[in-house]
Amino acid sequence: MSEAIPNNITDNMTSNRTVAILNTEAPFSSATGKESLDTALIFGSYEQAISLFFIGDGVFQVIGDQNATEIEIKDYLKTFSALGFYDIENIYVCRESLTERNLPENFHISNIQVLSNKDFSQRLHQHNVIFRF
């Protein structure tokens, strides 16, 4: 809560360092995807600039027409649509990973950028800290 904290402290908390989260697992068989999203939301809550990357089976987290309630799992995928409220706007998906899995560019969140393997990697390299989930 920025108003409760003196300005000089918030200045120290918000650095220019950028954080990337690299997602590599499908959404439902483990808690990894949800934990990754929770981590992103925490960074967002503290105004830390953060980008989300999806590669390999991680792309299964963002494809459209999924229905977690069919298998009685709490649908954390719905939370992706709230990312804008946490100022998380850089979301990248690897095109080769989609192609490999024969997936169309149909996603359940709107502002996804699909990048070639090389562009994806270059964008990832531009971040100071990278967490892989």
Partner: peptide
Amino acid sequence: NNVLAQCLNMLL
């Protein structure tokens, strides 16, 4: 697993 292959894909 294919983590090694994935890593090499990201190599610059």
